[in-house]
Design a protein around this nucleic acid. Structure first.
Lengths: 115, 115
DNA sequence: CTGGATCCAAGTTGATACTG
DNA sequence: CAGTATCAACTTGGATCCAG
C-alpha cells in the first residue's frame, strides 16, 4: 500500500520522519483513531506512532481530539495546513512512480565503483 | 541562500540526506567543482560532502567527472534523472514559502501542551 | 585539490513491559 | 484503548588527521 512513498528508501523524497508521509496518507480521507492507524502501518509500535503523531501535531499538520467515554477514544485528523501538504506529497509520489525504473537501474549499475 | 529548503528543519519535506537538496540546487545551473560546492554550503566538511555526493551518484542523480592535470579537478553535474528532481523540489519549496508563517505559528503555539 | 580513515556525539527507531 | 518508560541497536553528521 505504501510502496509509492518510501518503499525501500528508493525515493529520495521524504516527508517528516520515517512514518509521517504514510500517516498523512492514512488521514487523507478523514479522521482516524489511534488503533486504526496501526492497521495499515504494519510494524509500527505504539511508541513510535505516538511520537510521530506528536511531532505532526506540534508542527500544526495534525489535530488530536480525545473523546471521554466508557472506552477511551482518540481521533487524529489533518489540519488545513496538513491537508495542503498533500499537493507536494502527490508531486513527490508522481515523480517517484515516473522514475521508478531509473532509480532501480541506477542502484543496479555499479558504474565505475563495482562491488 | 538555502533558507527556503531546510532552514531550521521547519519544512517537513526533505530530499535525500541533510545536504542533498542544497547540493542539487547548487548544481542546478551547470557543473560545479568540489571546492565550488563547499562555498555556498558553509559548514559542510569534506567528508560529509563526499558522502552526500557519493550517495547522489549511486542513486543516479549526479554524475562525477575527474580531470587529470597538474592540479586535481573534479566536476559534479546533475544527470537527467537528477534534473527531473527539480520539479518536485520546486513544488516543495513553493509549499514551504507559501505556508512559512503557518509553520512558524504552529511552532510558537503551545496549544494544549505548554512547555 | 579531493578526498579517505578514524573516532565520536547525537538523534532515530524499535522491542518490551507496564499504566490509567 | 491509548498511550508511557526504559533500554538497546542502528544511523547520521561532524571533527580531526592523513594521503595521492
Amino acid at each position: 500500500m505504501f510502496d509509492p512513498l518510501c518503499p525501500s528508501d528508493l525515493s529520495p523524497i521524504r516527508i517528516g520522519d520515517k512514518w509521517a508521509g504514510m500517516i498523512i496518507r492514512c488521514l487523507e480521507h478523514g479522521p482516524r483513531r489511534f488503533s486504526e492507524l496501526r492497521v495499515p502501518l504494519r510494524g509500527i509500535t505504539a511508541k513510535v506512532l505516538t511520537q510521530s503523531l506528536r511531532t505532526l501535531e506540534r508542527n500544526g499538520l495534525v489535530a488530536r481530539t480525545a473523546y471521554a467515554g466508557p472506552t477511551q477514544r482518540v481521533e487524529y485528523e489533518l489540519t488545513p495546513l496538513g491537508r495542503s501538504l498533500l499537493e507536494p506529497l502527490d508531486a513527490a509520489c508522481a515523480w517517484a512512480s515516473e522514475h521508478w525504473d531509473e532509480l532501480i537501474d541506477a542502484r543496479e549499475a555499479p558504474s565505475s565503483f563495482a562491488q
